[in-house]
Design a protein around this nucleic acid. Structure first.
Length: 502
RNA sequence: GGUCGGGUGGCCGAGCGGUUAGGCAGGGCUCUGCAAAAGCUCGUACGGCGGUUCGAAUCCGCUCCCGACCUCCA
């Protein structure tokens, strides 16, 4: 097991030891959402993946600047004939100001991410707030000979870029420029203006119906579709930073073009490590609105969808995501979610049991002590191996078994040193809550549940009395009634505990 | 068609040359007034066909399926 953090760098297609540019600091940029409609659940998976990476880097002691943009301008709508901006089109549709649309869906996005307990990025820049910087970069690219203007639009000269060996166009996505020539479809917009089919726009002249528009040296228009990330990552993280992340589907053309733009303007690519999160599938297939194979975060939470038998809480979904490595596809099925729900509860319940072990710590360390420490070391090692949450989770589950055994007296508590118990509490908590980013949704022992806690304490006391008197009728009545109210009572060695839910 | 990535026990999902992943479900046992919870325990899987090797789920070849990207998309 490696003790150093290793990450899978998409650019080199191999795992590499992670070494930040500035000791103790990490700059990370993740391509954020385009806010022209409600967040896609797949989006959430990507951001949850990077949320865990962010959390783990901080856990390791790094000071992280996490930049995740909001794209509120610049994406062409492919299925429309006009080639107009997605935001503008949506605005027309709903009779709203473009920025109103942007605001609405940004809010919605934030709400969902909050439900998933994702930490906010350090900076969340918007493309529309960086038009000047984008114009500057376009000019730089032109000045360096890699951009050309045609009818008010400016294109990136991929052929010249490739010929100069300035960068290696296609390196990230494994594409060759010759193949791009052959494959490029001839019905692309403004094809006739481009010198080469694989060239892409870095500034677009606005058509008359285009609402979002800004003045520039070339025309009244809007920036190209990949420029914002090049510009904003450079502005907030510098010309070279540590990690650039995003969904797998952004590798080409988005990230490839980003590299080209950065290289053309400042001579080198933006970052040292490219990390890509894989896609979320449902029932083995890509989520697709057209064939009905889709579910929104809200539908998933409420259960109002033909694809799920019931609603699953955000934390259950988050746990479900943890069970798969971020670089693998994740297949969402009702059955898998049900399993995740149980697993999640087990993980949280063990944490509560752990808290109760506190007073029983013995003085001498034994085999159990060693096993616990080994498992904690292993869990960390798994995370160091490219943020392997499924493996780390496996170790934490093994810890949960040990904790339960200790609680039930199946393992000798006096073999666990006070030091190890302390470490176990800190470590278990750190993994479950700080790194995995889960929250306790099970109701009991919550921070803001003092009233319910008090009531339950009383009810359990009453039932314990009944049981002491072998008044089974009363004790079972209490238990059944609680069950009806969705509260489960569990009799253990040290008394009765309770949880909300089945 | 091109480029990548996959096919693992009933389900999900790690592993990627020799060792029990883990979760869920199922069987058995322990504990318990009963139940639940919890613990212990059982199941012996790697798409197919060849090859390399003392040894392959793990490497190589062929083949069959699946997915992603190639066009806005996380």
């Amino acid at each position: 097991m490696e003790n150093e953090l290793r990450v899978y760098n998409s650019l080199h297609r191999k795992k590499e030891i992670f070494k930040p540019i500035h000791e103790g600091h990490v700059g990370m940029y993740v391509c954020g959402p385009t806010v022209y409609s409600d967040v896609h659940l797949g989006n959430c998976r990507t951001f949850v993946s990077f949320d865990i990476i962010y959390r783990y880097l901080m856990y390791l002691g790094y000071k992280v600047r996490y930049v995740r943009n909001i794209t509120d301008v610049g994406h062409l709508e492919n299925d429309a004939d006009t080639g107009e901006d997605k935001i503008a089109k949506r605005a027309r549709l709903e009779q709203l100001e473009p920025m109103e649309v942007v605001q609405k869906y940004s809010n919605g996005f934030h709400d969902i991410m909050r439900m998933f307990n994702a930490l906010e990025p350090s900076i969340e820049p918007r493309a529309t707030g960086h038009i000047l910087e984008q114009i500057e970069m376009v000019q730089e690219i032109i000045d360096n000979g890699y951009g050309y203007e045609k009818n008010g639009s400016v294109y990136f000269d991929t052929l010249k870029y490739a010929e100069d060996k300035k960068g290696n166009y296609g390196e990230l996505s494994g594409r060759k420029i010759e193949e791009l020539i052959a494959e490029s479809r001839d019905d692309l917009k403004k094809q006739d203006e481009k010198k080469h089919p694989s060239d892409f726009a870095i500034w677009m002249k606005a058509s008359p119906e285009h609402i979002l528009r800004w003045n520039s040296p070339w025309s009244v228009g809007f920036p190209g579709w990949h420029l914002e990330c090049s510009v904003m990552s450079t502005k907030y993280l510098g010309e070279t930073f540590d990690i650039h992340g995003g969904g797998n589907d952004l590798k080409f053309p988005h990230h490839e073009n980003e590299i080209a733009q950065n290289t053309a303007s400042c001579g080198h690519g933006p970052c040292n490590y490219w990390l890509h999160a894989n896609m979320l599938l449902m029932n083995g297939r890509k989520m697709s609105k057209s064939d009905g194979n889709t579910i929104s975060p809200e539908e998933l939470f409420t259960g109002e969808s033909p694809h799920v038998s019931k609603g699953y809480s955000p934390m259950v979904v988050r746990f479900f995501m943890l069970q798969t490595h971020y670089s693998s596809t994740l297949d969402l099925t009702d059955e898998a979610l049900q399993a995740a729900e149980k697993g999640y509860r087990r993980l949280i319940e063990a944490n509560k049991s752990l808290a109760k072990l506190h007073n029983h710590a013995g003085p001498s360390a034994g085999k159990v002590d060693q096993d616990l420490n080994d498992l904690m070391d292993l869990a960390q090692a798994e995370m160091n191996d490219d943020f392997n949450t499924p493996k780390a989770l496996g170790r934490i589950f093994e810890l949960a078994s040990k904790i339960n055994s200790l609680k039930d007296g199946h393992l000798p508590m006096n073999e666990v040193s006070a030091e190890t118990l302390e470490r176990l509490e800190a470590s278990y908590h750190a993994f479950v809550f700080d790194i995995f980013g889960l929250k306790d949704e099970t109701g009991a022992s919550g921070d803001d549940n003092s009233v319910l806690d008090g009531v339950m304490e009383f009810i359990i006391e009453m039932r314990t009395e009944a049981r002491a008197n072998k008044d089974w009728a009363t004790s079972d009545k209490i238990r059944d009634k609680m069950k009806e109210l969705n509260i489960q009572l569990k009799d253990g060695k040290d008394g009765t505990s309770w949880t909300v839910g089945e």
